[in-house]
Design a protein around this nucleic acid. Structure first.
Lengths: 229, 229
DNA sequence: CACCCTAACCGGACCACGGTCCAGTTTCTT
DNA sequence: AAGAAACTGGACCGTGGTCCGGTTAGGGTG
């Protein structure tokens, strides 16, 4: 269980300096960068908290991650958890940060078809599949980390993905209202929807995958790719 | 727990009397109907509670609708509120019930283009616009009534609308995976998305409306309707 | 290197709200 | 009239989130 020991959502007065991200430049799109220099004790506590949270998730599922429990498990005061992560959503988001960055790096600078080099349409298809599988893996966490409705779309992580889709769309259908279409496509990848379709409706992931392909084709007004079946 | 048998938000054996809605029969599809006979005192309290809740909303917005406050304002115990409506979501949903029923009646049995009689494609377009404007009117309530992510799509009210879209789609594109496409279309109409686009991104409703039209055209692979501008 | 000063950090008491429970009361039925 | 089912209300609990007096790290200074 490897989690990212850095980054998070930041509550008040967040210094947001150059960033310690050793990644190959992620443009400014890297929505997560946090303060690079925490006081030694703070950094230590932060690491402890993330570790404790991860352990709790492993043991009791995302629902078991209670702020008090995490604080206690990390031998830290409750106030500290909130100071560090802002709120529950922030903590959960921090837990997801690692895979989030990975995905972002992949489609911004990784190998085709996800990364640059492939034609936009193919990249779009690959993108959906990648997000789909990523979400499917961490469904409960992903679900629990979802902020209240009002902030759902404002969340920076969502914003980065949406922007990427918008850019790709713009290359395919320059005359369309790509912002709106991008939102629509992103909605299809909403963890809550994935959860509902797979867990509650019992659809296999393959069907969602095919659905994505089909949706992309329709939205971009391109030919459907030949389906194996 | 395998069925979605009960309605608006009923915890255990929830009677939901004719109440104060004197609507004309909504077929059985009316996902909300509850058993119509509550004990006299219960019915009286229910009405009081709804009234109190509505007043609170008018005064302090949806955020001010606290279960305790509603109970107090209705001169009723807190337990009563929960017994009647199950949970906060249930109460808020009940508040929306009236317009919800109206919408449902309109597209199930009203005049074209919303109701039967018009070609499916036109009905679909009209449907989106109707939902769009309805949501825009009651945005905060609509938002506050949104249940936690896990139940969002399971909610009967959403189910009814989705089914309707599915049926229409099936008449237009019989060979497609209409269930999936319907979900996608419905996502576009999610109150949370509407809120974000209009309030946070400052898009005018007209643009969303045009976006719906365009989206429908693309998804159904039909010609875009001529836009006035 | 020892000291000090301040900003940053810590912890846990405290609050509000959603939700549960159950002893007591009211309504309906026969 | 009397019994059973349904309803009531408020005490109670757990959790997310706030607050603030006390503590500590660590850079500047002599």
């Amino acid at each position: 269980m490897l989690y990212a020991v850095f980054m998070s959502a930041s509550p008040p007065s967040l210094p947001e300096p150059q960033g310690l991200t050793g990644e190959p430049e992620l443009l400014q799109v890297s929505t997560f960068t946090d303060e690079p220099c925490l006081r030694a004790d703070a950094a230590r506590n932060r690491a402890r908290l993330l570790e404790a949270a991860a352990r709790l998730i492993a043991e009791h599922g995302a629902a078991g991650v209670t702020m008090e429990a995490v604080a206690a498990a990390a031998n830290v005061g409750k106030g500290t958890v909130f100071r560090r992560f802002g709120d529950r959503t922030g903590l959960l988001t921090a837990l997801l940060d690692h895979s989030s960055r990975k995905l972002q790096a992949d489609f911004l600078g990784g190998p085709p078809p996800l990364g640059p080099g492939a034609p936009p349409l193919e990249r779009l298809r690959a993108f959906g599949v990648a997000v789909l599988y990523r979400s499917a893996e961490q469904l409960d966490l992903q679900l629990a980390a979802q902020p209240d409705p009002a902030r759902r779309f404002a969340h920076p992580s969502v914003g980065a993905l949406t922007t990427h889709v918008t850019v790709l769309l713009r290359q395919i259908e320059p005359d369309a209202d790509c912002d709106l279409l991008a939102r629509t496509l992103m909605s299809y990848l909403d963890p809550a929807l994935i959860h509902h379709l797979t867990q509650q409706c019992g659809m296999p992931l393959e069907r969602l995958e095919a659905g994505w392909s089909d949706l992309v084709a329709r939205v971009t007004r391109t030919e459907p790719v030949a389906r194996p079946h």
